[in-house]
Structures are given as C-alpha cells and as structure tokens.
C-alpha cells in the first residue's frame, strides 16, 4: 500500500459562523448532525430561520441521479423559496452535505453562502475510476467496488461535483497482493 502525500483536493471544514447580513438562515442537517448547529440555531430569531432535519435513512443518497428523492424535493422547495440573501448551514455525513451544496449552487447560491460543519462520521462516497460506479458509506480501504468488484484503494483526491473520493484498483500491478483493510479517517 502506498503512503499518500497530503492531497489538497480533500475538503477541509472550518468553524461555522453566523452570516450576519443574511435575511434567512437555512439550517439543513441529519438528526445526528443537529447538535453541531444547535448553538447557531439558538442564536437566530425564529422568524429569520428555517430548520430541516432528516433521518439518516432519508439522507442517504440525498439527491439521486434524477434528483427525485423525497429529500431533494423538500430541500429543493426550501431553496427555491429562499431569498437572495440566504445563508445555508449544513451538518451531517460528508456526501449528504456536498449533495446539498451542489443542489443549492444549481439554484443560484454561491459557495460563500454555504457553510459545512465537520462531517458526521468517517464514511466516504467512493467513485470507481475504472467503471465510474459509486459505492456509498465506505469506511475502510481497500474497498470492493459495488460496480466492477475490483479492490479499490480509497484516495484522498476529492471531487466536489461527484461529492466523492476516487478509488483506484490497489493490486493491479500484482493481483496476488490483497492488503488488510484499514479504517479511514
């Protein structure tokens, strides 16, 4: 297995702060993610805030390829009704937050209007570089691809568009090599 140098495309998550000039504060999270936002939620007058909380099951694959999930519909409605000066605060699993960020951008929000908490859990969405299949909730590397079955090294190289890390076959040079899975951070 190779030791990865620090890869700069991996997102970093800074502290989330209130955007004071926003007219609406939109909090979107999973139940597990709400505690990270609670102090901020409490700091905003009720008339200026909106809170959407999803169960972990709803949050999975928050936006499917056709954008048809229940979650996407609910969030989509809230985003489309939001004024230009809206601040969005996200908390939950990493892929859930980036799906919502992509949805918000598609309806005209700018990146600086969207803040994300430290992701809940270490689960990663994985994009197989060989067959382009997505494998959800990956916690160890290497991971078997849900599409082609290859054993994938989970790299830190991250695509915001796919909201996923890239996976590359770990033993292509020597298929006899089957390394022990290691937990991802």
């Amino acid at each position: 297995m190779t030791i990865e140098p620090l890869i700069k495309s991996r997102p970093s998550y800074g502290p989330v702060t209130v955007q004071i000039n926003a007219k609406l504060h939109l909090f979107i999270c999973t139940a597990e993610g709400q505690s990270a936002l609670q102090t901020l939620i409490d700091a905003i007058p009720q008339t200026q805030r909106q809170l959407l909380v999803f169960s972990a099951t709803d949050a999975r694959g928050a936006v499917d390829e056709k954008g048809h999930s229940l979650l996407a519909e609910q969030v989509g409605a809230a985003l489309c009704d939001a004024p230009l000066a809206t601040a969005i605060y996200l908390s939950g699993p990493e892929a859930f937050m980036w799906d919502l960020r992509n949805l918000a951008r598609s309806v005209g929000f700018a990146d600086e209007q969207i803040q994300m908490c430290e992701p809940v859990g270490n689960a990663r969405r994985l994009f197989c570089t060989h067959c382009y299949a997505i494998t959800e909730e990956v916690s160890h590397s290497p991971q078997t691809c849900s599409g082609c079955g290859r054993l994938l090294l989970v790299r830190d190289h991250y695509s915001k568009l796919h909201a996923a890390y890239v996976g590359v076959q770990i033993n292509a040079e020597d298929p006899a090599e089957i390394p022990e899975p290691e937990a991802l951070s």
Binding site: K8, S9, Y158, S159
Partner: peptide, 22 residues
C-alpha cells in the same frame, strides 16, 4: 489522470495529487 473524475475541478483541485509543489 481521469477526466471523468476531475471534471469540473478548479486548478488547485485537479493538481491536488501532485506532491511537494503546493
């Protein structure tokens, strides 16, 4: 490098894996 995966990335994002230079 993979165009399909790197599509849409910013300059620094798609150079993310290059060691030392950052």
């Amino acid at each position: 490098w993979s165009l399909a995966f790197d599509a849409g990335m910013s300059f620094k994002e798609w150079h993310g894996p290059v060691p030392m230079a950052h």
